[in-house]
């Protein structure tokens, strides 16, 4: 369990978006992890990440309930931007900011997939949602990132609801 403390902190840090709160949440999650150590089944990393994830959501509910306001898990209609995304030319700051701006459920799916390289099944177990929901959230996360990181992203853009 403890060898995965970096993964645990990374998740807490991305969900709370600051070091101080991430440390508090991780502290709390570690206490739980110790307490439920007997309940460890299967792989340690998803197990620990599930505990950390729940501690983060509990914390967000208490401290920033607005961030957990219901989001629509259904992907929007495909609206591919015509311009190619030159992702490799993006700077780190822009990427980090765009991820930080994602709604929590999408951010969580993205971090677990891209930074922890977990499978859909593992992410579903950690987030407590069906695999289909993980897929839509990941698709939404990537689409929102793509929009935020478009070369012309600085220009205000109207959202068209169909």
């Amino acid at each position: 369990m403890l060898p995965h403390v970096d993964a645990a902190y990374n998740l807490a840090r991305w969900l709370t978006r600051n070091d101080h709160d991430a440390e508090d949440v991780l502290q709390d999650a570690m206490l739980r992890a110790y307490r439920f150590f007997g309940g460890l089944r299967g792989e340690a990393r998803p197990w620990l990440l599930a505990i950390v994830r729940n501690a983060c959501w509990t914390w967000l509910q208490a401290n920033r309930p607005a961030e957990l306001a219901a989001v629509d898990d259904e992907p929007e209609a495909d609206t591919p931007g015509p311009e190619a995304l030159l992702a490799r030319e993006l700077d780190r700051r822009a990427v980090n900011q765009a991820i930080a701006a994602l709604p929590v459920p999408f951010r969580e799916a993205l971090v677990l997939r891209e930074l922890e390289d977990l499978s859909y099944k593992e992410i579903a177990r950690i987030a407590g949602v069906p695999i289909g929901t993980v897929m839509s959230r990941l698709a939404r996360a990537r689409r929102l990132l793509m929009e935020a990181l478009r070369p012309a992203a600085s220009a205000p853009r109207l959202r068209v609801h169909k």
Partner: peptide, 18 residues
Amino acid sequence: RMRELSAAVREKADYHPA
């Protein structure tokens, strides 16, 4: 585009060690 985005996130997003 999607693949490029995924690569950019993996390479450029901060990973926060404990």
